[in-house]
Design a protein around this nucleic acid. Structure first.
Length: 462
RNA sequence: GGCUGCGUAGCAAAAUGGUUAUGCAGUGGCCUGCAAAGCCAUCUACGGCGGUUCGAUUCCGCCCGCAGCCUCCA
């Protein structure tokens, strides 16, 4: 039985879909004006893992993740770079898809763009105006009147009085209440704009998600996810907009993932302390990043450091070492491991525990290999299968073990093979000093030799 | 200031009212020409103070420390 921590209730709740066997999942995606950083990677990997697990559990899933391709920052960046809006956004959408593929993130079922949802957005704003939940300010912008929505603040546990007390942003005089937020923004000169009943302009940030999610998944759907920082005000505003417009319960379960941190501080664009996915990929294999992300629970903070990435690499090395030279055949999946794995994932997607099951499997597999037990294939099949649910250990073991890219200058494989042959000859001649020297020299260059029982040697990169 | 959440062994990271997490590192053993890998065994814990309880790392309260949101942010 799957349990999900619901931000709305701040409790783990038994997941019960609106429609038996079906799940609608909406996740707030990227604003595409720059490359994805590790924080974005976390959202992608976390919800990809959630999506994979829903499908494995037999649900018919519709996974929607939007792209914000119109926004102040995008406009500014396009101006700075002297390119058109779409030139900029298309470039970063492609870059995002590249990063996703690298991280084994499967594409969502629907990936709506804000600029392609303008009619839906306008229609929703019109309803909000008609219901007197929105108004046109002095400057022509359309605002949502926060005080008119009775449950405002329920998701983030805030109330309007507290929010006003803590108000620390410049008051926009066009608003009736400083907490009101913009639904439609009038265009300034040279800004991309769409016609609307209120004039040429563009949508505010929050309304696009309300429009796209309800259009793709219905007025009511099961799960809405995103980073912790979106809880307030973004998701709070989405609820106000959607429920205000439709009169129906917007979302049943809200899932928020924790931040990636650097030195105990949130990784973010504004702090400038971020690493892009493509930067990190120069130093670590993509699977290492994915493992690193899954090694902590999705709601916990995740500290980014070379030490942590190296730990992830060593951990994956252990799993691949167990799989090395093994074939899964047509073996069945071990039911006990499968049950333990499912129990972990059913508990609010507890990937650290799910991973620990994989390590227990690896240990038994190693022992089975040594004992030449008939269980080997079953254990291999199980490790591959359960790893696959997390999007890891699907590659060839030797490919992973031999392709360390830690120090850039990788020693040529042919050269390594030559050295190994020389060493085998030295071993045959019982010239241990020479054999050891060759091995030590290779070790210096990050190549570790491992002699096998059949008198040969295999190798891997450190 | 208001509202969240967190504080676990050398590091990372889970669960749990009484019993093994797991990975890396350490120690002892097996294996090996010696290693590496692997296997077996093993040492390091639950921020502080009170309370509830037969029993608390786990529940409650207070304190200390850290992070996040309250402004664009995944």
């Amino acid at each position: 039985m799957l349990k999900i921590y619901n931000t709305l209730s701040r409790k783990k709740e038994i997941f019960s879909p609106r429609v038996e066997g079906k799940v609608g999942l909406y996740v707030c995606g990227m604003t595409v004006y720059d490359y994805c950083h590790v924080g974005h990677a976390r959202v992608m990997v976390v919800f990809d893992t959630v999506a994979r697990y829903f499908r494995y559990s037999g649900y018919e899933l519709c996974y929607v993740r939007n792209i914000t391709d119109i926004d102040d920052k995008i406009i500014r960046r396009a101006h700075e770079q002297g390119v058109s809006l779409t030139e900029l956004t298309e470039r970063f959408i492609e870059a995002m898809h590249e990063d996703e593929r690298a991280l084994s993130v499967l594409p969502p079922d629907i990936e709506p763009k804000a600029t392609q949802s303008i009619p839906d957005i306008i229609a929703m704003i019109e309803i909000l105006c008609a219901k007197d939940l929105a108004y046109v300010g002095h400057n022509g912008d359309v605002f949502y009147a926060v005080t008119k929505f009775k449950n405002y603040g329920q998701l983030s546990g805030k109330n309007l009085d507290d929010l006003q007390a803590g108000e620390r942003v410049d008051v926009d005089l066009a608003k009736r209440n400083p907490l009101d937020f913009v639904l439609w923004k009038m265009a300034k000169e040279n800004e991309p704009a769409w016609p609307s009943p209120w004039g040429l302009g563009r949508p505010g940030w929050h309304i696009e998600c309300s429009a796209m999610s309800t259009c793709c998944l219905g007025n009511s759907f099961d799960i809405h996810g995103g980073g912790m920082d979106l809880q307030f005000p973004h998701h709070e505003n989405e609820i106000a907009q959607s429920e205000g417009a439709t009169g129906e319960k917007f979302v049943n379960y809200w899932m928020h993932n924790g931040f990636v941190r650097i030195n105990e501080e949130k990784m973010s664009k504004s702090l400038g302390n971020f690493f892009t996915v493509r930067e990190v990929l120069k130093q670590y294999q993509p699977e290492i990043i994915r493992f690193f992300i899954l090694s902590s629970h999705y709601r916990s903070p995740l500290n980014y450091s070379d030490e942590q990435l190296n730990d992830a690499r060593l951990a994956l090395t252990r799993l691949y070492t167990a799989l090395r030279g093994c074939d899964r055949g047509n073996a069945e999946i071990d039911v006990d491991y499968k049950a333990r794995f499912a129990a972990a994932m059913d508990d609010d997607f507890n990937t650290p525990v799910a991973l620990s099951v994989l390590f227990d499997l690896a240990r038994e597999l190693n022992a089975a290999k040594e004992a030449k037990s008939i269980k080997v294939q079953e254990l291999v099949a199980s490790l591959r299968f359960l790893g696959g649910l997390l999007g890891i250990v699907q590659g060839d073991a030797d490919d992973f073990l031999k392709s360390g890219i830690v120090n850039g200058e990788a020693l040529d494989e042919e050269l390594i093979e030559q050295q190994i042959q020389s060493r085998l000859a030295a071993k045959k001649a019982k010239d241990w000093a020479l054999a050891d020297k060759i091995r030590d020299d290779l070790k210096e260059q990050g190549v570790i030799l491992e002699d096998t029982p059949n008198g040969l040697s295999t190798w891997r990169r450190e």
